[in-house]
Computed example of a mutant assay.
Amino acid sequence: MITWRRVTEDDFPLLRRWLSRPHVARWWNHETDAAAVARDFGPVARGEEPAEDWIALLDGVPLGLVQRCLWDDYPEYLAELASVTEVPRGAATVDYLIGDPAFTGRGVGPRVIGAMIERTWLDHPDTPAVLVPVVAANRASWRALEKAGLVRVAEGEMEPDNPIDDRLHYVYRIDRPTEGGATAHPPTG
């Protein structure tokens, strides 16, 4: 069972280890020294920034990180995404990594993504959809989104996290389930 706890400063050594793993470093392209991790994760951990960082645990064992935020809280990134696809007011996004390589390639990623989306519907009752842009070259990431029930609704150029990547991104979306529990089909195009 996937459970969650918010990232605290005590988690920074764990984040440093995960970010330095080759399978993570390829796509996250993040500095891994203590000062950089404190600089980049500290404001969220202290509640100074509106995003949320969560440690995903499987049966109590930390296995990855999910960052969640509302697009409206980050106007620069919202504008970039809105140049590629329609973004409903109040929409959320997630970014994720499986830090422990023992959990990669085992279907855990889609479970983590799906569990955070379910939590998003509960935590943010006014959020109509979750939209996730992913660099097109990161097939494992966009396949995990598809397996978690998200649908590709657009593609276009966006700034990649890693400068070695092409600007082409796919945008995935899932809408809040309807009253009967069925997931609404997002618009495509």
Rank of each mutant, 00 (worst) to 15 (best):
L65D: 01
A45I: 06
D33Y: 01
A45N: 03
D72F: 14
A45F: 00
P50H: 03
G64C: 08
E48R: 05
V61C: 12
V66C: 13
T32C: 04
H30L: 02
A56M: 08
G64A: 08
E49I: 12
D53P: 02
Y74F: 13
G64P: 07
R46F: 03
E76R: 14
G64Q: 13
P43D: 00
D72T: 04
Y74V: 11
R39K: 08
E76Y: 13
V37R: 06
G47L: 08
Q67H: 10
L57A: 02
V61D: 06
D33K: 04
V37M: 02
H30K: 02
F41N: 05
L63D: 06
W54H: 04
L57E: 03
E49S: 07
T32S: 01
D53N: 12
V37A: 03
H30T: 07
D72M: 14
W54T: 04
A36S: 13
A51Y: 07
E52I: 13
D73Q: 05
P50C: 06
L65V: 05
L58M: 14
L57M: 08
P62I: 14
D59V: 13
R68S: 13
I55K: 10
L70Q: 15
G42E: 01
R39Y: 05
I55H: 06
L57V: 10
D73M: 13
A38N: 00
Y77N: 12
A35D: 08
A36K: 10
W54Y: 10
A45P: 00
